[in-house]
Amino acid sequence: MEAFDGQKANRISRVTLPRGSSEIDLASEHSIIEWRSGGHDGGGIAFGLDGMLYISTGDGTSDSDNWVSGQTLDDLLGGVLRIDISETSEDEPYRIPADNPFINLHDARGELYAYGLRNPWRLAVDALTGHVWVGNNGQDLWETVHLVRAGENYGWSVYEGSHPFYQNRRMGPHPLTMPTAEHPHSEARSITGGVVYYGLKWSELRGHYIYGDYGTGKIWSIKHDGEKQLALQEIADTPLAITGFA
C-alpha cells in the first residue's frame, strides 16, 4: 500500500464475517486501496452493474483545495475511482479495468474514472440503468449533484459547479462538464447524495434519484435518461440534518 509520510489516510478493506456470526473477524482485514486524508474524504462505495467497485474521494483538504488536487490526475483525490476486486492477492489487492478512461494517459492514475469534485458525499448506482450518482459538497455558494460518466471533469477548484472559482489555477486536460443539478446556498448548504428509487409506494418517483441536504433538510428528486434531465423537483422540506438515505 502507499505511504503518506505519517499523514492520515482513508482505507477500503475487505473483511470476513464468519458464517453464523454477527461479529466481523478483524484479523481477516485485507486492505484494498488507500488515499490521503486531510479533510474532504468522500468515502462512498458501490458496485456497478459491470461488477466494478466505484469509490468517491474528496480533494483531501478542509478548505479551498489547498493541495490543489481537484484538477490533477496523478493522485487518487477529488474524483470517482473504478477498480476491479474480483480477483485479489496480497501483492495485487485490485486491478485497474482496461477500459478506464485515463489508463493510457501519461502520469495519470488509471484508477480514476472522473475527477474535479470537492467532496462527493455519498455514491449510488442505479440498479436498473447502472448510472453512477454522487452528491458533491460545495464551498462558498453552490452545492452540486452529478450523474458520473467516464472521463468527465467537474471543474473543482477552478470552478464551483458551473461557476468560476479559482480562475488563476490550471484546468485539467479535459473541459468542464456541467453539474447535473446545482443548488445555491440559499436552499442547500451541504448536499447529501441519495439513492435511485424503485419502490412501490410512490410510483411517480420510480427511477428518480432522491437526494437531500444536511443543512436545510430539503429533499429533491431528479430524473435523467442518461442524455438529458427529464425532471427536477423539491419533494420535501424537513427539520432533519440528512446524512444518508437507505
Rank of each mutant, 00 (worst) to 15 (best):
G215A: 13
S56H: 11
D50T: 02
P184I: 04
G70N: 06
Y113C: 01
E92D: 08
D213E: 01
P120W: 05
I24D: 08
S21T: 11
R189V: 08
G78C: 04
W202E: 10
V68L: 13
N119L: 14
F245G: 02
V68E: 15
L73A: 05
A108E: 01
K218A: 14
P93E: 15
F165R: 01
G217Y: 09
V68S: 13
I83C: 01
S62F: 11
K201H: 11
Y211N: 02
L77E: 07
M1I: 06
G39H: 12
S64P: 01
V148A: 09
E227S: 13
G6S: 10
G70Y: 02
T144F: 00
T177Y: 02
K8F: 09
M178V: 00
R109E: 00
S162M: 00
S56G: 05
T57C: 04
T61R: 11
D84Y: 03
I24S: 09
R14P: 04
H183T: 11
D84S: 11
I12Q: 06
W121K: 11
A241K: 15
A241S: 12
T61V: 14
P164E: 13
R82V: 09
S62L: 14
F165H: 12
R11W: 15
R36D: 07
I55Y: 02
S22I: 13
D65T: 12
E87C: 09
N153S: 12
Q167C: 08
S221N: 12
I24R: 04
K228N: 11
V196K: 00
H183V: 05
W142M: 05
D63H: 10
N100P: 04
S56L: 06
S157L: 13
K218T: 13
G20H: 00
I222E: 03
D25N: 13
G38E: 14
L117T: 07
D237P: 03
D107T: 15
D237M: 06
G6N: 12
A9L: 10
L230S: 04
L117P: 03
T180G: 08
P173Q: 10
T192M: 04
